[in-house]
Design a protein around this nucleic acid. Structure first.
Length: 209
DNA sequence: CTCCCGATAT
DNA sequence: ATATCAGGAG
């Protein structure tokens, strides 16, 4: 089936079903979004939202986090998993942001991805929320859904993003990741996808086998 | 490529 | 018991 046609059907479906999909990581500002997103690696955002209230109460900004005791940070974020790596990332990140960028993140892709704990996916989330989307967020849900719908055949997130960028108009880049993620969580699930109830099944290469 | 890692659904 | 969860670093 023609990719561009599948994509257009997908737009129509997503806009009808998830018209105002947005980021589900609870945050009040750029600092909180960046930290929440780093913590969300291989962890549900629900779990992240459970630990961040205490984390942000004790460390309300990069300056406070830079002065934190890493042991206390580890205990607070432990339930999100990978807590040693994540604690090291966010405390080191805070110190760099304070000393090098005056306490706030630079909203520039090339600078963001050099910072500890921030890769292409995290940077895309930050930019699409607080600046202009420079690309498309490719996380585990976007990867799975894109492959099932036949929009890409790759496993490498960078290659998947290139495929999606060529298929999706730029004015949708910021929102479509959130829409696909909602779709991936509720319907096109990893474990038990609800294909029988899915409006995309007639256009889905995964459903046809 | 491997390692990091706890919580939850299946 | 095991797969999966808004990945990133070495």
């Amino acid at each position: 089936m023609e990719k561009t046609w599948v994509v257009n059907k997908f737009f129509e479906f997503l806009d009808g079903r998830f018209p105002d999909a947005k980021c589900e990581l609870i945050h009040k500002n750029l600092y909180e979004l960046a930290i929440s997103t780093i913590l969300s690696a291989q962890c549900t955002d629900e779990m992240v939202n459970r630990v961040t209230p205490l984390l942000f109460e004790k460390y309300p900004d990069f300056r406070a986090l830079a002065l934190s005791d890493i042991g206390e940070v580890k205990e607070i974020i432990r339930p999100t998993g990978f807590y040693n790596n994540k604690a090291k990332s966010i405390t080191t990140l805070a110190k760099i942001v304070v000393t090098k960028y005056g306490g706030e993140l630079p909203l520039v892709m090339e600078l963001l991805v050099k910072l500890p704990g921030i890769g292409r996916k995290t940077a895309n989330i930050i930019l699409s929320e607080y600046a202009t989307a420079e690309g498309i967020v490719v996380d585990t849900h976007v990867k799975r859904v894109s492959k099932r719908l036949g929009l890409t055949t790759h496993d490498d997130p960078i290659k998947i993003e290139k495929d999606l960028i060529s298929l999706i108009p730029e004015n949708r880049w910021g929102k479509i990741s959130h829409q696909i993620i909602h779709f991936g969580r509720q319907i096109c699930k990893a474990r038990k996808p609800e294909c029988s109830n899915c409006q995309m099944k007639d256009f889905c290469s995964y459903y046809k086998q």
